[in-house]
Design a protein around this nucleic acid. Sequence first.
DNA 1: CCCCATTTTTAGATCAGTCTAATAAATTAC
DNA 2: GTAATTTATTAGACTGATCTAAAAATGGGG
Lengths: 257, 257
Amino acid sequence: MAAESQRTTTVSSTVEDYLKVVLKIEDMKQRASTSRVARHLDVADATVTDMLRKLKKAGLLEYKPYYGATLTRKGRRMAVRMLRRHRLLEMFLHQVLGYGWEQVHQEAERLEHAVSDLFISRIDALLDYPAQDPHGEAIPDARGFRQVEDDLCLAEAEPGSYIIRKVTNSEAEFLAYLDKVGLRPAIRFSLQEKAPFQGPLKLLPEGGREPVYLGLEASGSIFVVPLKQRPPAPLPEGAASRQAGDRPGRATEKEEA
Amino acid sequence: MAAESQRTTTVSSTVEDYLKVVLKIEDMKQRASTSRVARHLDVADATVTDMLRKLKKAGLLEYKPYYGATLTRKGRRMAVRMLRRHRLLEMFLHQVLGYGWEQVHQEAERLEHAVSDLFISRIDALLDYPAQDPHGEAIPDARGFRQVEDDLCLAEAEPGSYIIRKVTNSEAEFLAYLDKVGLRPAIRFSLQEKAPFQGPLKLLPEGGREPVYLGLEASGSIFVVPLKQRPPAPLPEGAASRQAGDRPGRATEKEEA
DNA sequence: CCCCATTTTTAGATCAGTCTAATAAATTAC
DNA sequence: GTAATTTATTAGACTGATCTAAAAATGGGG
């Protein structure tokens, strides 16, 4: 019954969504400008201007007109908490309720605002404190610590052997496609060719019958770890995404809260 | 993957709450008057007047000014669906996540608006299609059929031997108290005395060391089945509330949808 | 049948989150 | 370094759910 971070302030699910988006943008090393936030949330720019001002007043982020937002410590804490909830819920839906990895995102998107901290700590225990979600993304721990995720983007990889670490794109159709061609976290493949000028990549997945050709959208959202001479130990059974601990490409912990 | 009732209209969770309350009041054979609905939802009467008019326009209930509301077939279908979701979620929280029966209501109250039909059908299967929730209340099936619940209210019972069928009061403190004195669904007890003029009941629960004295609030929300010469077969293990099928006091099915 | 207490509705307002259209600031291009 | 383009903010309005306070209908008791 590990204590989940006890809320100090209660905010609407709308606020939670804004914070999540700002965190996501900051994680991509981009400026959280009004329009960028608006695009992520699919609302009008004017709406975001208003809301960022409110969030600033609530002490959740800094806001500079004509520039954009930066999370404060408090805002970041809340955003990371949502990330943890989202990813734990995805893992729960996948492992316990048998959802496909392309189905988990949408459901978690609603549940993350509705479940209690008790619910979260119970599924955390039930899943035996998973470190990754079904897409291979790291789950922040209950204290708000996050693994540094410095994996190599497939779009930047050179020909060679790799293992898929994570896929950062939650569109169901896209994930269903990857699944169909045999690309999932923990799957090994060899990158055989890169056509020039951002052309398609040719790669051969592990069980490989057919080669697969991927364009920019796909290769930009797949992150990999190069397979060394000594390939990583076989993964614990149970799930494509239940890998634990330290492997090349995963650095140690980093404070967040 | 049994098909959950596919939504035709999508409504806000507020609307869902109004429908639930009207159903609850109708189930108690009372008139769903403005003020009664308002009390259940803890909102002002004026708010209810407005909302009932909207719900009438949406075809979810009939509304007669200065009289009150009556669910239409469509409104009833939606209300029963919420009842099913709520009770299945309670059972899930109790059986899978280890919630106490006094904890499940509050969490289910939020989740019932957030989970998808897929979620509901998955937990239904996981729980092996339970017929009762942790309080012993019948769970409507996926088609909207409900068991007729004609159990005897403890407040109206005569001295004798009984088995607790259900407890209809979701206040956590109240349930925690009942639990402490050993009163739970499927528990046998003997009603020893009834003090006159709605006075306290004296009863001795199954494992009975001490007698327990109950006032009106308690005895009015406990429903029982008299124990005949031939007491009901021992219940399947696993849960206080996993009893299945036909026993005295439970009638057969009744169409709802 | 009329008055009074209760219940209900009406009227008017608020709040959060959103929109569109118009204006203004910032940035880029030449 | 000014003009054109892009980005952001302001202004004004809407919707859904709620409130309070005032007015109106209902339903008994005499």
